Computed example of a mutant assay.
Amino acid sequence: MPQPGSPTPDIQDAFAAHPELRTICGAVLGAVSQAGLSNRVYRLDAERGVFFLRLPRAETAGMVNRDDEAENIRCAADLGVALGPLFCNPASGILLTRAIENVGAPPEVLCGHLGDALGQLHASGKVFRGRLDPGQVIAAQKTALGSGGQTEADVALLERALRELQPHERSGPARLAVPSHGDPSPGNCLMAPGRLWLIDWEYSAMAEPAWDLAYASLEHGFSPAQEARFLEAYRHRAGDRLCPSERDLEIMKAKCDVVSALWGLEQRLKGSDKTDFLAFANARRDRALAAVRKVTG
């Protein structure tokens, strides 16, 4: 465990702007920065316990409906799949929860816990605020990116790939939407003894079940055997009705990677230096194109 350092200026500013934080935590004795691409997250050692404090980054301003997120995380906490908020301020995006120790788990163990947690969420019958539709997300991302240079060429390439998928997609009635986490990537999965918690519900909304399942499998890098175990745990909790076919899951994987690639390009355009977002975007672009080739033959 890293030794906690002194509270950073952004933590001090948050506590000054929101006295409720000090009421809940007491004085902050130390802080350790946690991994996170779109937010600043700290583990706080304070007089009244240990907490997670999320402070949004400036470049994510306007990208998340914080009112919807606040309602959805409370709903997920009632189900026991999210840490309940101790302080949640949609206007600022600041979120405080109790901290838990992440004991970690190898993918072959985590896949079963994650499948169970997503199955519980999807089959709960809860109604989240917001709607997460890949087509709408991608259209908004294209508008945000604008035109010009290599970015425009990458967007055009991904658009052509998505058009190739269209003849292979299901037609008919509108697809079922379920309460979804939206980004069940490794950094948002905390493995406590005997159970898994999902954190960071910024992109939570009603979505097709395939969205969470595809994103989880992709970002955790599940092997075929691990993905099979993941889906088996999901079916055990949610039933066969919600589980997509192999083809539909592969199509959603392509769409998820397109969204991730465009998100990476957006972050780079906004000047975020949190990570190498160009390499991130290129890796997701290449994986999306490979998935399209797999579906279309």
Rank of each mutant, 00 (worst) to 15 (best):
P4A: 13
S6N: 00
D10S: 08
Q12S: 11
A14I: 12
A16K: 01
A16C: 00
C25R: 09
A27Q: 11
L29C: 10
A31K: 09
S38P: 03
N39F: 06
R40T: 12
V41P: 13
R43L: 15
R54P: 09
N65L: 05
R66Y: 10
R66A: 15
R66H: 00
D67F: 10
E69S: 01
E69G: 04
R74C: 14
C75R: 09
D78C: 00
C88V: 03
N89D: 15
N89W: 04
A91G: 14
S92K: 03
V103G: 07
P107C: 11
E108W: 02
D116R: 06
L118P: 11
G119K: 05
G125Y: 04
K126E: 11
R129D: 15
G130F: 04
D133Y: 07
V137W: 03
I138C: 03
G146D: 06
S147D: 10
G148S: 12
G149M: 06
Q150A: 12
A153P: 06
D154P: 00
D154E: 13
A161Y: 12
E164Y: 05
G172M: 10
R175H: 08
A177I: 08
A177Q: 13
G182P: 03
P186C: 15
L190P: 09
M191S: 12
L213I: 02
H220W: 15
F222Y: 11
S223L: 12
A225Y: 06
E227W: 04
E227L: 07
E232R: 13
L242Q: 08
C243Y: 07
S245H: 05
S245I: 02
L249N: 07
L249I: 09
M252F: 07
A254E: 12
K255Q: 12
V259E: 15
S260Y: 13
A261L: 00
W263N: 06
E266F: 02
E266C: 06
L269K: 02
G271E: 14
F277R: 10
L278E: 11
A279C: 02
A281K: 01
D286F: 03
V295F: 04
T296Q: 03
